[in-house]
Design a binder for these strands. Structure first.
Lengths: 245, 245
DNA sequence: CCTGTTTCTCAGACAAATCACAGACTCGCG
DNA sequence: CGCGAGTCTGTGATTTGTCTGAGAAACAGG
């Protein structure tokens, strides 16, 4: 079920209207804190655990709708935590966090059952988007919710990663896509460069802040080229996207 | 929840009608005093602390709804204060104060959870506006708070930074926008040039006092041009804004 | 490995915003 | 009706913020 708040942000809720419950399992507290913060901001209820034991206990007591699970835990290995979690919560989807160099096919096997994964370091937009996808797919009962964002004559499909502007298909790179998704999830709202950097780039990005300007420039070439512009600069404040008028 | 006082000032209150509670953490007492004064004037309850220890104690005892936190504290670094604050007050949004040149450094991830920041030196209007935004969004789950100021046929949206006068969109620069916001938050009330300077310009502004006249002049061109004027001069006293009719 | 793509840094070009200054204007008072 | 304090606004110097081209580095897919 989705509902739209007065600000125009779309919230994902459970069938009974209560907030979605997410269990975050990672031994680095900076990661659980970052995720708790960001996911809470989505309007979800968060519980976190730092090891396998804590995860299992939380699973029993908190009854989450979805789990974020780091595959590197101190007390027991990811796979056995996963197995026990499954016994406790058979139908709950899992979003795996893995190191970039982790064996890909191993993960691929795990995600076969409708789970998903992201590699560290991740961007918050990425994690939020994947979680929304998992929740959406798990709530098979009402599958009305769809995966397309629309602002004016611009639409973006989160599943197929396709973007269209008034009938024309537009190819975007991964970063361009995430930036546009973030803008479109917050239409008519000014987003500062710092906010954009925090959500769209990975948490360990240490580069120049003007990558944001650069990617805005790329997006404009592809989306606004020769049309009524939808991406606008608010000097000294940030950027916003809105229908062409 | 918002309520409008007889004077026409809009006050932000908590769900139970009690005043909003703000914790201000900064080691420079000139800053905490300046902020306490200004925020008290908003009708909020203020507590201040000069170091990390004090901040944590105040967090436990005062239970603020929002925290203003300088990232440069004497006893412990901003990040660890932040971490401990979060453990104590998980859902309380934070407004960070940072030095202008430190912006680059490690603001990374700080605005991720819907938090916000302002750079020193700041203007009081800016701080108040951001705090109002944080409070509004933190309680936005059910309450229908919106981000638009309206005076007569003039409206100003704090999220999109858009200004409209009877259907026409008006583009304002950052300073013009803040000045107009201050006027519109105090409709039908005479504001002296000194008050305006203190609120809209940063606290270390050292320039000529007639910038206020200059910016009033800019605003009139954009807002009152060819219409019934809404901005009025009270010779020897200051300026005020009121509906044209 | 090699090749095309993507990400990102750097630096210069450009545009907009801010503000000082000074002269023009206006209101209210004698 | 003339004067002066107070206010308004044109001009332009300076600062600040944004955009974008060129190319280096990292990466992905044969």
């Amino acid at each position: 079920m989705t509902t739209t708040s007065p600000q125009g942000r779309t919230e994902l809720l459970r069938a009974d209207g209560s907030p979605v419950r997410v269990l975050v399992v990672d031994d680095e507290s900076s990661i659980t804190e970052l995720l708790s913060l960001a996911l809470r901001y989505e309007g979800w209820r968060i519980q976190s655990a730092g090891d396998g034991q804590g995860a299992l206990q939380a699973a029993r007591e908190f009854r989450p709708d979805v789990v974020v699970l780091d595959m590197m835990l101190p007390d027991m290995d990811g796979l056995s935590v996963l197995g026990r979690l499954r016994r406790e919560l058979p139908d709950v989807p899992v979003l795996f966090l893995t190191a970039k160099d982790a064996v890909e096919d191993r993960i691929a096997g795990l995600t076969a059952g409708g789970d998903d994964y992201v590699t560290k370091p991740f961007s918050l937009e990425e994690v939020v988007a994947r979680l929304r996808g998992l929740i959406r797919r798990a709530g098979a009962a009402d599958r009305r919710s769809d995966s397309t964002l629309v602002v004016g004559d611009l639409s973006l499909d989160e599943d197929s990663h396709e973007v269209w502007r008034s009938g024309d298909s537009i190819h975007l790179t991964a970063t361009e896509f995430e930036l546009l998704r973030f803008l479109m999830r917050n239409p008519r709202r000014v987003l500062s460069k710092a906010q954009i950097l925090d959500r769209v780039w990975s948490y360990d990005f240490g580069g120049q802040a003007n990558v944001v300007e650069l990617y805005i420039s790329y997006l404009r070439r592809k989306i606004d080229a020769g049309r009524e512009p939808m991406i606008h600069t608010r000097r000294g404040a940030g950027y916003l996207i809105k229908p062409a008028a």
